[in-house]
């Protein structure tokens, strides 16, 4: 039974934010960089970490934890910047996403992906393409294009009390 938009076997890059495993289509991941100095752009929202130099281009960097409305975390030696390519309206945006750690590339067959996340209610479904399963762990396959189509922090619908979330929009300095 087809229950997701995903109809073809594809490869996914998996990474971790907090205690969740996420995945994006490898076709959208350009490269994975170790953490490097990020130049903060003043007066922008916290999840906008700044810009980095990727071979001569100033590439914006977004903190995915903050973007997803998860708690802020210290950078570690595991922290990576995934350079992502998003195509929208014939325009290609390149941006870096800061993630806690990057894992392997997995192959999911369409029949192994479920449509709606049954793992709790807190994920906003419009940004989720499906849920895969790997080693008894759920992998949330996200639509990275949709994630960045809005300026607001995402995914978390019902914020748990103990979760720190930055305000949407402009940071108040």
């Amino acid at each position: 039974m087809k229950n997701t938009e995903i109809t073809e076997t594809a490869h996914y890059l998996t990474f971790r934010l907090q205690d969740e495993m996420f995945a994006i289509d490898v076709a959208q991941a350009r490269e994975i960089l170790d953490l490097l100095p990020i130049t903060k752009v003043p007066r922008m929202a916290d999840f906008m970490r700044g810009v980095i130099n990727v071979r001569g281009s100033a590439v914006p960097v977004v903190d995915l934890r903050l973007k997803f409305g998860l708690a802020c975390a210290e950078d570690t030696i595991e922290t990576r910047i995934v350079i992502i390519e998003i195509k929208a309206d014939e325009e290609t945006t390149i941006l870096g996403a800061v993630v806690d750690s990057v894992h392997e590339v997995l192959e999911f067959k369409p029949d192994r992906i479920e449509a709606s996340p049954h793992i709790g209610k807190r994920w906003r479904t419009e940004f989720i393409r499906g849920i895969g399963k790997y080693d008894d762990e759920f992998v949330i396959i996200i639509d990275i294009g949709k994630v960045f189509s809005t300026d607001e922090p995402l995914l978390v619908q019902e914020i748990e009390n103990d979760t720190e979330v930055s305000e949407p929009g402009e940071a108040s300095e």
Partner: peptide, 19 residues
């Protein structure tokens, strides 16, 4: 001058970046 990405188009007081 390297233009900043669209997502920084609202950055005030900043016109671009340079390496």
């Amino acid at each position: 001058i390297k233009p900043l990405d669209r997502i920084y188009q609202h950055a005030e007081g900043i016109s671009g970046a340079t390496i």
